[in-house]
Design a protein around this nucleic acid. Sequence first.
RNA 1: UGGGGUGUAGGUCAAUUGGCAGACCGCCCGGCUGUUACCCGGGAAGUUGCAGGUUCGAAUCCUGCCGCCCCAGCCA
Length: 433
Amino acid sequence: MNPPYARIADLSAHAGQSVRVRGWVTHLRSSGKVAFIVMRDGSGTLQCVLVKSSVPADTWELFDQLTQETTIEVTGEVRTDARAAGGFELGITALELIGSSPIDYPIQPKEHGIDFLLDHRHLWLRSGRQRAIARVRHETEQAMRDFFYERDFTLVDTPILTAAIGERSGLFATEYFDEGTAYLAQTGQLYGEAAAAALGKIYCFGPTFRAEKSKTRRHLSEFWMIEPEVAFNDSNDNMNLQEEFVSYVVQRVLERKKPELDELERDTSRLETVVGPFPRIDYTDAIKILESKGSDAKWGDDLGAEDESLLVEGHDRPVFIYNYPKEAKAFYMKENPADPRTVLCDDLLAPEGYGEIIGGSQREDDYDKLLKRIHEEGLPVDAYGWYLDLRKYGTFVHSGFGLGLERTVSWICGLPHLREAIAFPRMMNRLRP
RNA sequence: UGGGGUGUAGGUCAAUUGGCAGACCGCCCGGCUGUUACCCGGGAAGUUGCAGGUUCGAAUCCUGCCGCCCCAGCCA
């Protein structure tokens, strides 16, 4: 009878037993009469030892056919050995080749340029660093869903194909039957507002699309955004929710994905401090701070990347900047009753130069003021008829925000660029693989 | 779109500034019974991004084009 199959991660439970393991070759070393096969099965990495004198000749000769990424099945005894990375190794008794891999596998355990790696993203994902990032991303998403589930939010999936609505920045267009042009969603927020009137506390979580010709480490054409919307929350409640949410997610990843963060050489002490309350700086005060630090930012300007860094400087946790000038922000944000030049909104800036991870606001709930803003922005009123209905039929104070998943994952992982935070990044010059 | 940089072997990079196109990794052949990005010896591997120009001679200088990277803007 054949030994049972085992995942590498579970081998400690099989010490002293014979098992079969299936996976891919990552490294090969041979000393003539003893050979080492390091393999990966997705759950972990395992060193297998092949000794010429203790296996049949054809098994020994099979070693010569192995190359990086050959798919194999090995049978052997699991034993503890301090010389093996991880403390366990497999003494091979049988070796089977499942899928060969030509000698030209492009990705070596050496350095490569970013363009080459992105061209081979489908294979690059197999590397240890990329697996660690994928697992941190997964934990981040799961923590986000758990956070809202535990607080009785309802998940509402909003459409990706939409008519012209949302923000004004670049839209991806496509033909849509007899209805004319459809646009890929830039936000689910407006639909989320409709759902909040039905369900109270909701969130949506999906891909979102921006056709801007951005070429920075902070932008993707397609990224994932999670957007809660809460009936009867004002702007202050909204910031409280963001603070609680971000703290929860970061601490959850720290708790459950420490080995992955270590593999990424992340300084986790920079994440341990991410607990509320976060500093809250009024936009007008932020301008004064920037002036004192030598920036030429003026009241009325939106804040640039350099300004954001100056404001976060010296803080060991994210920082809110709230109540921006109306002109710098979207039409749907509620006018600030205390200063009508501004709107009730906030940006949450991550530390260490990662910039804006959240944009949030209280929504304009006054029908006439919203209609006026739509006109001022030159937006097609017809397209916003249903959105205005939310103010017409039982208006309500409500707030929400959008958190960029890849920016958050980049920050948690300490990545130099957003493109590693998603399996297959979409940028203006990259549509494949 | 603007500013800066870069393009040489499959990969990462060098080439004494205009004088025979090289190293390491990987690959192939040989050796090695405990390797850890194994090691040792040998070998194959190039339209120097593309097009044109200057020159006895161009990877190197000039013109144009293209790709990519970084920064800025847009934003999450």
